[in-house]
């Protein structure tokens, strides 16, 4: 009797969660994959076209640029940003002066909206009044001044760089992992005459392998799903030089080409999954319980 009662309550307690999860995760995933195989404008009949949307996308020059750019994003975040974050975490782990304060400052941009940060960088990169050009002017380097976001050669590096250098998020995760490595390991290495650099290379990196791989996976996943700052700073331009899949997905949604939009969506989801599996294969990680989304 009592057991039956608690059964009932388990169901009642789980129901809202399961319904919401189904409505916003399971159902949408099914929707994306199914609609990606059709030609559909959101109303009326769906025309089943099998893989036509995918074929169209992979033959489409703009989409190929977008995929390429997403991979540039993924590698910039996954390798450059993670490397920088690891180095800073290693330095902070030895508790230099004000390390807690620095840690707090480095993380600050992560609580501020991407929109506000993008607007700030639009101002910094601006051709006429932007801080970057004014700084170059002051340094007597005005020949390098340019319209950073409006020039094909500089737009993509400019958008990526401002984000790659915000290392706080991964630095915090890596630093937390570093703090769990027993001090005795470093003390022993110290006695054996290992330099700080050697200690970090041969103790920290192997000990933090799982966390580093998780961070790298996450960073690459962020690169693949990148949308906001590019959308605001360049909207994919000039001449598609900063185009990414997320923006194309949004544009297709707006032009009511839902089949194509969802084909991009499923490519995004599949690539994301692929990156996770691939990185885990390459680096041989076992843990799968440590993912956190921003």
């Amino acid at each position: 009797m009592d057991h039956y009662k608690s059964r009932k309550w388990i169901v009642v307690f789980l129901l809202p969660l399961v319904i919401m999860f189904f409505l916003f995760f399971i159902l949408p995933l099914g929707f994306v994959f199914i609609v990606s195989l059709t030609k559909w404008g959101g109303f009326g009949k769906m025309e089943f076209v099998f893989l036509d949307n995918y074929r169209y996308l992979f033959q489409n020059g703009t989409f190929r640029i977008a995929i390429r750019n997403n991979f540039i994003w993924a590698f910039s975040l996954g390798f450059v940003q993670i490397t920088l974050a690891t180095v800073v975490a290693m330095i902070l782990s030895r508790k230099p002066l004000m390390w807690k304060f620095l840690r707090t400052i480095y993380f600050l941009p992560n609580v501020i909206s991407q929109v506000a940060i993008a607007m700030m960088w639009i101002a910094i990169y601006n051709a006429e009044y932007g801080a970057l050009n004014r700084l170059l002017e002051l340094a007597g380097l005005s020949r390098f001044a340019t319209n950073w976001l409006g020039t094909i050669e500089t737009a993509l590096p400019a958008v990526i760089l401002q984000q790659v250098l915000y290392i706080g998020y991964f630095m915090i995760i890596i630093l937390a992992g570093r703090m769990t490595v027993p001090d005795s390991l470093y003390e022993a290495a110290d006695l054996d005459g290992a330099s700080v650099l050697q200690q970090e290379l041969y103790i920290t990196i192997p000990m933090l392998k799982d966390i580093l791989i998780t961070s790298m996976t996450l960073a690459m996943a962020f690169g693949l799903r990148h949308f906001e700052s590019t959308f605001l700073m360049t909207a994919g331009g000039p001449a598609n030089s900063t185009q990414v899949m997320g923006i194309m997905l949004y544009n297709n949604l707006h032009s009511l080409t839902y089949g194509r939009a969802n084909a991009i969506g499923s490519i995004l989801i599949i690539l994301g999954f692929f990156v996770i599996v691939l990185i885990r294969r390459v680096f041989g990680s076992s843990s799968f319980t440590t993912e956190i989304r921003q």
Partner: peptide, 20 residues
């Protein structure tokens, strides 16, 4: 299954969310 939801790129679900 629920926790694995953190791995899904929510941006890929724009169309269904709009529809829902």
């Amino acid at each position: 299954i629920i926790i694995a939801g953190v791995l899904i790129p929510i941006i890929g679900l724009m169309v269904p969310y709009f529809k829902i």
